[in-house]
Design a protein around this nucleic acid. Structure first.
Lengths: 327, 327
DNA sequence: CTGAAAGCGCTTACAG
DNA sequence: CTGAAAGCGCTTACAG
């Protein structure tokens, strides 16, 4: 950064004022074609690039969006991250990556977001505490929870139609002739878990069916343990709905290792539709998130000045059922 | 950013000069305990945070490190990213995430890196072209290729001991009594592919064995196709070494779907040791990267002023063989 | 359209 | 230890 080329040097070489150089690199400013040409040539020659720190400082506007990630366990998120970065890039924003080890966004991480006064933050796979929400609001940083909703936080949320999808899944399983059901859940308190559980059990109830509910934490290992236990304790049901694909794989493998056949003896369905679900050992039926639309809406909520600081909007977008070999 | 609290406001509330406020937030500066206390109290009250844009501008030093990612296909990378962000955070750096869709780092992405004049960039899973390397060098931005080496680029490289590991793998397979061998590779030109291929075939040759080499691209699908073709064309060998775990899964599944048993009929081994390799359907033998040490060394190369701008150092770190059920 | 000048919020010699 | 002042590299009224 010591030997950075400045607008001044470009101006000198081009024989114009520094203001003119600036105007050439500021869209919307009026510059004559001749000046523009001279400046561009000089800039090219010197390898000039406007200094983003100076620009953000004087414009009092950040071109950074904070992306908060927690887990690396669910391959669903890297895809969303990629979509976010590429869409944001088109709009002239860069991404500041925050990777928490904790469930919640920690003060340490918030500090970075605040120091750069990011134009917005999207929180993925992490549960923002009410305290975090207050913090963000206090510093007037627009935020959206991606694939999560935290009631009372007042933050925007963009999720998949979890409850509706879960109802659809219940109906599918009933149509397939299943009479007994199990739901294997995710971390207590996670909205995806809560909503899917609600939709599934309620719809079953509407049809006069009960449901065995097993606790989980979104990991393969816990899925496996649950699957094993179901078989060994003789609590196997006609159908199993796992809160995420990753958990479904664990359940499936536990079944397979114990000679339980899917879908002949048990129907199994997951949620997310990550890449592995179409792999040969699984061929898992599942429900796909509308990732692209979720990302687009999130960005809209963050960047639209009308909405970014308004009360939190909670959106549920419809995805798509993917029927494969396990149902 | 409009209503940001500045050092001036804190100074006024604390009854000191703005310089003193600055000193309190600059480590190494001398301030009296009394002043520090007054400033801290006022800062807390107002929710003050030094503006990082102003700070980077005046110090002519960026606190940002660019992290360049390409694929989302190999779960190996998200882990490395997490390690990078947490280590970097400890050193006071934040991460600017670049997510290319192209194989090479594109101009568009370089621009962001340049505008923020990042303190360094780590390139993962992307092949930096010689042109990119020139660009980075021209702007004096330290860079390290993670898990890649590009000869002639003059960039630092930190990789796993690919060649040595591949030799070890060859010996293991020979010890297991295998007489015929297949190597399923990655993208043409990728150094991981080249080095693993070299080590494997050379070591086999040393023992008087040949090797069938099949082309690949690091994806599950291509692994599957290769596996299927080997079975169907009768070109199955006693052992198969896949350039990455992901490809090994595809090969394994193609074998399994065709009734070929692993390891009874064919021994199979991968490279990376990602989470799925320990999952029940695979139990894949593989070679684990020393990710933590690779990350630590990369950061060292980037941040050490003695080395960051020096000629590219190429490092190969030893990992660890993980023997599971497929060998 | 163009240039001179002010100012964004900081750090850091310089004097005291 | 502390304050007044200069200056980092920009954008943007303000005059012309």
């Amino acid at each position: 950064m010591e030997n950075q080329v400045t607008a001044h040097e470009v101006a000198k070489l081009a024989g114009v004022s520094q203001s003119s150089v600036s105007r050439v690199f500021t869209k919307g400013a009026s510059v004559s074609g001749k000046t523009r040409e001279k400046v561009l040539k000089a800039a090219e020659q010197l390898g000039y690039r406007p200094n983003e720190y100076a620009r953000s400082l004087i414009m009092r506007k950040s071109s950074l969006i904070g992306l908060v990630m927690k887990g690396v366990s669910n391959p669903y998120y890297p895809h969303a991250v990629k979509k976010f970065t590429s869409e944001l890039k088109k709009l002239g924003y860069s991404v500041l990556l925050i990777d928490t080890d904790d469930i919640e966004l920690q003060m340490h991480d918030i500090d970075a977001l605040l120091s750069y006064h990011v134009a917005g933050v999207v929180i993925m796979d992490a549960t923002a505490s009410l305290q975090t929400a207050e913090m963000l609001k206090r510093f007037r940083i627009p935020a959206v929870l991606f694939n999560r909703v935290v009631p009372g936080s007042g933050l925007h949320s963009v999720s998949c139609e979890n409850e509706t999808a879960a109802r659809e899944i219940a109906r599918l399983l009933i149509d397939r002739g299943c009479k007994s059901f199990t739901y294997v859940g995710g971390r207590e308190g996670a909205s995806t878990h809560i909503e899917r559980l609600k939709g599934f059990t309620e719809e079953l109830e509407n049809h006069g069916f009960g449901c065995q509910v097993l606790p989980g934490d979104f990991t393969y290992g816990t899925g496996y343990r649950n699957g094993a236990e179901m078989v060994e304790s003789g609590r196997l049901t006609d159908a199993v709905f796992a809160v995420t694909d990753i958990m479904a794989y664990g359940i499936f493998d536990a079944f397979r290792d114990r000679g339980v056949r899917v879908p002949e003896q048990v129907k199994l369905i997951g949620f997310d539709d990550i890449e592995m679900s179409s792999w040969s050992p699984y061929q898992l039926s599942t429900y796909a998130h509308p990732v692209d639309r979720m990302v687009a809406l999130s960005i809209e909520l963050l960047l639209d000045p009308e909405r970014s600081h308004a009360d939190g909007e909670v959106h549920y977008l419809p995805g798509e059922m993917k029927l494969r070999g396990t149902t």
